[in-house]
Design a protein around this nucleic acid. Structure first.
Lengths: 194, 194
DNA sequence: GTCTATAGCGGGATAGAC
DNA sequence: GTCTATCCCGCTATAGAC
């Protein structure tokens, strides 16, 4: 949408198609039709589909880092960071039928080109590390429950969010996502106040 | 394997391929090669791939009902049922690279044939209903936390389990699944004993 | 119920003109 | 950087012999 250049337009549409249908269920023809150019022109920017997949996941990683750095500049608290994360994922859950790319790629992991697999695993670890880090800080500050290691809390949150997006989309009940997000938040919060 | 008839052998292998690669990333040729017959013979049993997908999901639904009825015959308590469910999903998390079919089909939902989508949604609702029912009973018996509606607990458990399988497989860290399963169990259990 | 053979299409990818 | 044209392959699906 209104991308500054063709390469960006391709990545934008590819991301949308991954989140809608999965990596293996869209084609260069779909990209060409959506952008209004020919298949061969897509190959000029991304010689193979594996190249496109790697570029897509690497862009997701950079975007995630940029997104997180905004929170740092705002001196966001651990709870504010967690809420920002939950809100961000909730936006996926509107009516557009898109879910988070992590979940899609994880589900078809064995069918991904090998270099896409590698980028994807690093992306997952980046999210896991970021979540565990903010959860640890929240535990130290006494606002999060510390009966469980922050790494385990992070794994639960990451898993539940991506699973909930999948369930909500298919069932058509987005309140199911909201219930999960609220449950996760209450689960880590110390039971002093809301 | 060692299926009694060809039709069952096809369904068994199709299920394995879905759980490994996704529905859209395996072909009739894969089935034919794995079973040792020709593509055209697969079409004799399942005229279209959509038919195969529907038969597969419907079989999953029947198997789930049969599995649950065994627990009823054993007079299993709500906690025993929950543990059986977590154990069953944990078996997926061994080293064979397979995850639960619910998660795979949910991730590629928009790319599924329409009748497969319909069967899949009913499968999801069946699991959700079963989980919510056992959680409600556990709440009534005072063994599960009742600060949250059982439907919301069920959505959290179902989401987290299928997300955790996806994360664990890709990251190669199956302890991440175990941490999630343990976290879910502790989350619903009343904090009296383990 | 399984086979051979083939139709018909769409996939990823490349060559070369503009 | 985008185009036309094309290659080759694998896919789903069907026809008809055995």
């Amino acid at each position: 949408m209104n991308a500054p250049d063709t390469r960006t337009a391709i990545l934008d549409l590819a991301e949308e198609l991954v989140r809608s249908r999965s990596f293996n269920a869209f084609s260069y023809q779909d990209l060409a039709d959506g952008i209004g150019i020919r298949k061969a022109s897509i190959h000029y920017h991304f010689q193979t589909k594996e190249d496109l997949g790697v570029a897509l996941v690497e862009r997701l990683r950079r975007q995630a880092i940029a997104w997180a750095s905004v929170l740092v500049e705002r001196n966001a608290t651990p709870l504010e960071k967690l809420d920002a994360y939950l809100d961000f994922q909730a936006q996926n859950c509107s009516s557009d039928g898109l879910i988070c790319p992590q979940g899609v790629l994880g589900a078809e992991y064995n069918a991904l080109p090998s270099r896409v697999q590698e980028s994807y695993v690093e992306f997952l670890e980046q999210i896991q590390t970021w979540l565990a880090s903010l959860l640890r800080k929240g535990q130290e500050q006494g606002v999060f429950m510390d009966d469980v290691p922050p790494e385990d809390q992070a794994a639960l949150i990451q898993s539940a969010i991506q699973g909930a997006l999948q369930l909500s989309r298919a069932s058509g009940k987005q309140q199911r996502f909201e219930a999960v997000a609220k449950g996760l938040r209450d689960h880590v919060l110390c039971p002093v106040d809301g």
